[in-house]
Design a protein around this nucleic acid. Sequence first.
DNA 1: ATTGACATTGCACGATATTGCACGATACGG
DNA 2: CCGTATCGTGCAATATCGTGCAATGTCAAT
Lengths: 259, 259
Amino acid sequence: MSITFVHFMLTKHRKQSILAALKRDGQVIAKALSASFEVSEDTIRRDLRELASEGLLQRVHGGALPSSPAVGDFVQRQQINTVAKLAIARKAVELMLPGQVAILDGGTTCVLLARHLPPTLEATIVTHSPSVAVELVNHPGIEVVMIGGRLFKHSMVAVGAAAIEAITHIRADVYFMGVTGIHPTAGLSTGDLEEAYIKRALAARAAEVVVLASTEKVNAASAYVIAEVTAANTVVVERKTPRALTDPLAALGLTILHA
Amino acid sequence: MSITFVHFMLTKHRKQSILAALKRDGQVIAKALSASFEVSEDTIRRDLRELASEGLLQRVHGGALPSSPAVGDFVQRQQINTVAKLAIARKAVELMLPGQVAILDGGTTCVLLARHLPPTLEATIVTHSPSVAVELVNHPGIEVVMIGGRLFKHSMVAVGAAAIEAITHIRADVYFMGVTGIHPTAGLSTGDLEEAYIKRALAARAAEVVVLASTEKVNAASAYVIAEVTAANTVVVERKTPRALTDPLAALGLTILHA
DNA sequence: ATTGACATTGCACGATATTGCACGATACGG
DNA sequence: CCGTATCGTGCAATATCGTGCAATGTCAAT
């Protein structure tokens, strides 16, 4: 039985090792794999064909390449679920009034919001995200204030004591907040502790808090709590988000905007 | 499995690398690609032809250019005099040592410097330019610290009292400074008063100051003085910059590096 | 224990892809 | 206008690919 198990694992383990090597080197070469595993190139080709048919890698002449380049980095996350986020961003833009001071969170939705600010709008944008700042470079009417601090690489926003300190000197009319979860009882939450601190500090400095949440975030909760849901005044959700999900939030006094 | 040293490159991967190099450098040269990939120029020409037919780049005599040159205000300035600035950036990169804390100015040359930091380098980069910060998003080994403040639109860097205040909490090994003029008697100068304040504050917080100056900046002076030239320790200039221009600076004790 | 179904592997072989070289054509710079 | 560098094409050599098939090993049922 153990012999059986070992043999079964050898094939599968070899494929896993191929994927590991691929992730490590960015490419694998059939000939080299053949030598490493001491199997024929035919076997390797078979493995690669099968892995390719499962979408785990991309078959090319001589070996294989990753199916999706650089998974998980910030630039790539910026691409997913774009249509929904774009709709939310466009709707949220309507909440900005001329002359206001607005805080923009990091996150892809807020970058889209920045990109779609009306070209004629004159206002001040406070942000702790360099991406948002860069997005506003060519906007003629927007004054940009950058919150500094150590940059949390995963989400590319300033975090830490320096950022918290800088935030205490800000007073804003509205804060557009991105979350990974908004839940009637669990509250507003996000996946990183440092980010939660920052968002809480930002929310405390804005007269109105607008939460931007795609459907999967509604009635969900992440590890770190930012604040009670009542800390938010308005929630912008997708058009397709069911009323059943948003009604409990509306019952708590929040304004629900469907994009 | 033993570590297999990849001594050659898959065709498709080579094409991806060509595109990456093109995006990074703004141009590629057939001969240089041939040498770096250790294949014949014919193969490179074939690659370039095929990539051009896919619309991924624009074929020109001797190499290739990006198919769609990015447009924009700041982005556009980023394109001018690229080769000279790139050479300076590449030379300046050599001054960075592992584990160091370095301050990077705003400006196109510093963005190029950030882009060309060795992928394996582990260090801390302090910057008041969101563009530089965004450039470092996907660098695995670089810790980024953002100096916040009001963003001066023309050059896209944080300026003002908040930025000055934040800088006082920093201590760096080296400061890569961009200037619009470096003159033996007029000193280091720039075109904006706020920027001059910032650069002066940054220079005061770094153990070593490296000035990056393309030829037209040497022996030139702008409206606002940052400091005496002796505030700088090293000046990186273009290879073509005449000794006659740099000798007066060297006489003042500055190290001159020709890119 | 034996047998048959099934999985995995290696080999043969024709098909396809990639590469480098030769050669004539074309573009660039002085 | 000419020399040089670069370019594109044809071609041959080599490498890689996919498929069919036989050999070996494993598993489950008898």
